[in-house]
Design a protein around this nucleic acid. Structure first.
Lengths: 342, 342
DNA sequence: TTGTACGCGTTATCAC
DNA sequence: GTGATAACGCGTACAA
């Protein structure tokens, strides 16, 4: 910031005020080293520090120690309503641990992602929470191999042993399918998320298992993959589904945005939801209860996802040898107005 | 991060590789000083830098220069759907200027805000974009007096001359009222945002002017203040409004969240919207078009708000003497299903 | 045109 | 228990 404020007091200022060496001040102020210095000196130093309003300079500290008490948050797009609650959870847990987070948006562009992560590393972030993982993700493998503490949220990566925090996708999809089956639906479709993401693949797999277990139709045509986790991609997949099959009475969408894409197509084609077709989403984004119709969906505890991810990362930073444990957070079906009996 | 990667190359490494002094390398790499060094040396240095994959260390640079190419974003809560698009706009403009942004959430807690801003300053952020401003805001006045480059988004502060980027609240409210009047409504109420914020005050004032100009009822009872810009506060204000007046046929809400609060109360009391009462929001948050009913609202170009704010801040950082210019961004009424003829 | 010397604020490592 | 010194990576007067 501007320099025309009286520049912040440093260790040296305190040292002069107290009449000791800067080293002594440093030790007196550092909880880990204050036993190396006389109790009385500690008192005087701390008092002077308080009086002068001393604040340690994180830049200098970072330069000296190569640590920053900061972690990077790698998000595809903060504009996606899924992420703000997760970020909020992450930040509250980081704050509790004395850390803070630096957010970057990758726009799902691998080049951009690489650049941004490079810049985070040069800022000495001590670890990364990554929400952009794809099943094949060489960059993450590199980072992992380089020993960078890493936690994945909402995603997994194949072949590397990195801790991750995800929702229980299989349970969520099962609950959704069971709910629809209970309502009498027998030809249920799945608008799957991108199969390049672990989440997309896991939910699609869970869907196939669920319909088979319940003895429902499991023809391949009932699963359509969306190119993105977006409303547009969901709409376009919904169009191809409905063009190919006229007998579908219920849809399990890969996530809420994809479900919104269905709503768009229903509007275009005059399809009544839930009268003609029922829809279930996934995630329970904010405000779904106020949609027309209110969207039945699978609730994911996003704040908790963030909290757990941050805790895991801090644990990993503290003890790099700690084995990578993953965490599956429980989900719950929230029944609203977009599902109805057949 | 972990140190077990081959630590990043420094000026010294390049100097050794090329066989010159680090100073020379520094000068050769710095566009501003590279004319002080032989053209051939520049070439060799740059080549070596590229070969070694040299990246300047922002920490060391920051320590040396007291600059960080970083600005702070002070947001009440990133979870409010209003902010992500603004943040996105800010970041894209910052990136274009070679800067990046550090986001903090204040939770509207002044103590917390003070602490967080202190921490941002100690990280040498070069300026602040603030979305938490209240009309009375001593902290901001202090910062301004201290010469900290500041830009306000969505808000103004009284008594200090700080640049701000806001939507044209008056025009938006006028358009909303005119729209309702055109539909035949004569008793229009306003659920105002907190009058401690410039936005709340400006919209309330604009509302009074608009109803008076159109010759509609302007009894004081038709304006109710909400304690917060939130769905809950909106609902509670809507309840007191409807308890006191049974003749209201239309509501201009202070923002979309307050409008959602109205929806809640309509649900509780079996009021049909827009059949019994019409509602207009403000902001055009994402997904309002899918509500039940789709919310008529005033569209604010949030991304542009962010872009302009960031540009203004960078201008102010570059030239601290530049006079504080404010910017009013045009808004437009988006008519959807929550408003109907009387 | 290039090199020397020093400082930014902090901590690690010796010495006393 | 305390002090002196060096070092982190970089920029900049000043000297050569």
């Amino acid at each position: 910031m501007k320099a025309n404020r009286p520049s912040a007091p440093t260790l040296r200022d305190i040292a002069e005020a107290v009449g000791v060496h800067t080293t002594t001040v440093s030790r007196a102020l550092n909880p880990r080293t204050q036993n190396q210095v006389g109790a009385d000196t500690v008192r005087r130093v701390r008092k002077a520090a308080k009086d002068l309003g001393y604040q340690p300079n994180p830049i200098a500290l970072s330069l000296r120690t190569s640590r920053s008490r900061t972690v990077g948050l790698v998000i595809p797009d903060i504009t996606n309503p899924l992420f703000p609650p997760i970020v909020r959870g992450i930040e509250s847990a980081l704050e509790a641990g004395g850390y803070s987070g630096w957010i970057v948006n990758t726009d799902n562009d691998p080049q951009r992602e690489r650049k941004l992560i490079e810049s985070l590393r040069s800022r000495q972030v001590e670890g990364l929470i990554v929400a952009t993982a794809r099943l094949e993700h060489p960059l993450l493998a590199e980072l992992h191999a380089a020993g960078v503490p890493l936690v994945l949220v909402n995603r997994r990566v194949e072949g590397i042993d990195v801790p991750c925090v995800t929702a229980d996708d299989a349970a969520g999809v099962s609950a959704a399918v069971a709910h629809l089956a209970g309502l009498g639906h027998t030809r249920i479709a799945h608008l799957a998320g991108p199969q390049t993401t672990s989440t997309g693949a896991a939910r699609a797999r869970a869907f196939r298992h669920a319909v088979r277990d319940l003895g429902l139709s499991d023809e391949p045509g009932l699963v359509v993959e969306c190119a993105q986790w977006s409303e547009e991609a969901g709409a376009s997949a919904a169009r191809s589904l409905l063009d190919a099959r006229t007998d579908v009475t219920a849809v399990v969408a890969g996530n809420d945005l994809i479900a919104l894409g269905c709503y768009d197509v229903f509007g275009e084609r005059g399809i009544d939801c839930p009268g003609d077709i029922s829809v279930v989403g996934f995630n329970d984004m904010p405000f779904l209860d106020k949609l027309r119709p209110p969207l039945t969906t699978v609730h994911v505890p996003h704040h908790d996802v963030g909290v757990e991810a941050a805790r895991m990362l801090l644990d990993g930073i503290e003890d790099p040898e700690r084995p990578a444990r993953s965490m599956l957070l429980p989900v719950s079906l929230v029944v609203r107005g977009s599902t109805a009996p057949r």
